[in-house]
């Protein structure tokens, strides 16, 4: 019998966010591999299926996480190749800041094994609801913090800038579980090229269980250096400038509007015989 893989998201808050189809996949799987955000969620998952195997054991401080993630993919695919109906359950959304599920699905498809993804409620979704940010209002850009630091980026200060995994800012080794204030100083220096030092930024953490309190701590940009950060802390930088009109494009659009209006309002011609 051919195996299959479904990557599902269980959402951020235990019990609040899981979709009916994700739950059904978990309940009907032969094997469920898991990466949950906390022990409560792991226990909850284990109540849904007797064959839950956590992938947590692959994480080790000092070990390159690229290796870790490839090992997780192999563990998942080994059981799919064995003909098992496999579910990989991730907290949040399985395809947002979640390379294991993307890698596993791509690899399965290359081997002609059926593999699909079911979305979940992500930390990003919770952030918009908890902080009252509409990404459509001024635009919004997202980066993994270290990637943001390592590569040249055009920073758009009239849009929200959201930096994920800020506690690992500047970790080139991919092997640390946190980085210190020296690394954050580099991040803050980079941001100070674009934002004022007293610009208010937000440290955000979504609720993991019902009794948690969502974290929305406003600090000035420079206070980030010594702030208390956790693996799941996200840095939200609101806009510090107004959107600037693109006069060239607006002029071209105005010309088109004018032409359309002339065509619409022009005299009606009739044929006189």
């Amino acid at each position: 019998m051919s195996g299959s893989l479904v990557c599902v998201g269980t959402g951020m808050t235990l019990g609040a966010h899981i979709s009916p189809i994700a739950r059904s996949h978990i309940e009907q799987a032969d094997i469920v591999f898991s990466l949950m955000a906390n022990g409560f969620a792991q226990k909850w998952l284990e109540e849904m299926n007797d064959e839950v195997r956590t992938l947590q054991g692959f994480y080790q401080e000092g070990k390159n996480r690229n290796i870790t993630y490839n090992e997780m993919v192999e563990a998942i695919l080994t059981e799919v190749r064995n003909g098992k109906k496999v579910v990989a359950a991730f907290y949040g959304h399985p395809g947002v800041f979640a390379c294991v599920s993307h890698r596993a699905i791509n690899k399965a498809k290359k081997e002609d094994l059926p593999a699909t993804m079911e979305p979940g409620i992500s930390a990003e979704d919770c952030l918009y609801a908890d902080l009252g940010i509409d990404p459509g209002q001024t635009g919004c850009t997202h980066y993994e913090t270290s990637q943001f630091m390592f590569y040249q980026r055009n920073i758009e200060t009239s849009a929200h800038l959201i930096l994920w995994q800020v506690a690992l800012a500047g970790d080139k080794s991919l092997a640390k579980f946190s980085t210190g204030s020296a690394y954050r100083e580099v991040l803050v220096e980079l941001l100070l090229e674009h934002y004022p030092s007293d610009h208010q930024v937000i440290l955000y953490q979504a609720k993991g269980i019902a009794i948690d309190t969502m974290r929305a701590e406003y600090i000035s940009l420079t206070e980030l250096i010594d702030a208390e950060l956790f693996m799941h802390t996200t840095l939200v930088i609101p806009p510090c400038t107004k959107m600037q009109p693109n006069d060239k494009v607006l002029a071209r659009l105005a010309e088109i509007d004018k032409k359309e209006k002339r065509a619409k309002d022009g005299p009606v011609l009739s044929l006189v015989l």
Binding site: Y59, R65, Y69, A98, S101, E144, F150, L168, D171
Partner: peptide, 21 residues
């Protein structure tokens, strides 16, 4: 109750191909 780590599974430079240990 297990103590778990909650990384965003994302790397600054993503590399799909398996790498050597």
């Amino acid at each position: 109750l297990p103590e778990l780590m909650a990384f965003s599974q994302v790397l600054p430079a993503d590399e799909d191909a398996p790498i050597e240990d």
